[in-house]
């Protein structure tokens, strides 16, 4: 497309005195002023009392979720810790003698799972990388604390805030499949 030069319409003398512009501005501002003062047409949201409706797909704070049986979904694979760009996630793996998962057959569960909400940039890469659908960016946007320590959320807190997220129960299905088999039944842990 070629550039199309549009001639600027010459201003009349009246327009060149700025008066129409000033009067126009006066009218607009006066109207808004009156609307606000007399009709109460305010766009302000009185924040702590009034809250914004968070849209679907909003990327708020990442929390851990439990499955429909109330079991921790995270298996401590540490991919989120690896992918996290600001290194906000810190997982302590269970170790050989550590606690086993609170659901059957998954063998592994994090001993500690910490997200430093001061470091977190809410990019959602942890959610994207998670092979167990155990971490989700939820709708919390107002995360406050009185000191730096309180902004590091531990596993317990993350699970409590995260709630339940039903999905395919991979490990449970595997266990049922194995138990239904004639030979090599896998012992339920």
């Amino acid at each position: 497309m070629s550039t199309k030069v549009v001639d600027r319409a010459p201003l009349t003398f009246y327009e060149r005195t700025y008066l129409p512009a000033i009067l126009g501005g006066l009218k607009v501002t006066a109207k808004h002023f009156a609307d606000t003062v007399f009709k109460g047409n305010s766009v302000t949201m009185q924040y702590p009392e009034e809250r914004w409706v968070v849209p679907e797909g909003y990327r708020g704070a990442p929390y851990l979720v439990k499955d429909q049986d109330g079991a921790t979904k995270c298996v401590s694979c540490q991919l989120c810790e690896f992918v996290c760009p600001p290194k906000a996630i810190r997982i302590t793996p269970p170790g050989a003698d550590g606690l086993t998962a609170d659901r059957k057959n998954a063998e592994k569960m994090p001993k500690e799972f910490e997200i430093n909400m001061l470091r977190c940039i809410f990019c959602g890469m942890c959610q994207e990388v998670c092979p167990e659908e155990a971490i989700f960016l939820q709708k919390d946007y107002s995360i406050t604390g009185e000191n730096r320590e309180s902004m590091i959320f531990n596993k317990e807190k993350l699970l409590k805030l995260g709630g339940t997220h039903a999905g395919i129960q991979k490990w449970k299905n595997k266990l049922e499949e194995a138990q239904a088999q004639e030979t090599f039944p896998v012992d339920a842990q």
Binding site: H32, F33, D35, T36, S42, T44
Partner: peptide, 10 residues
């Protein structure tokens, strides 16, 4: 205040 009212704020 006046600025706010002109801009439909509080």
């Amino acid at each position: 205040k006046v600025s706010a009212w002109i801009q439909n704020r509080v």
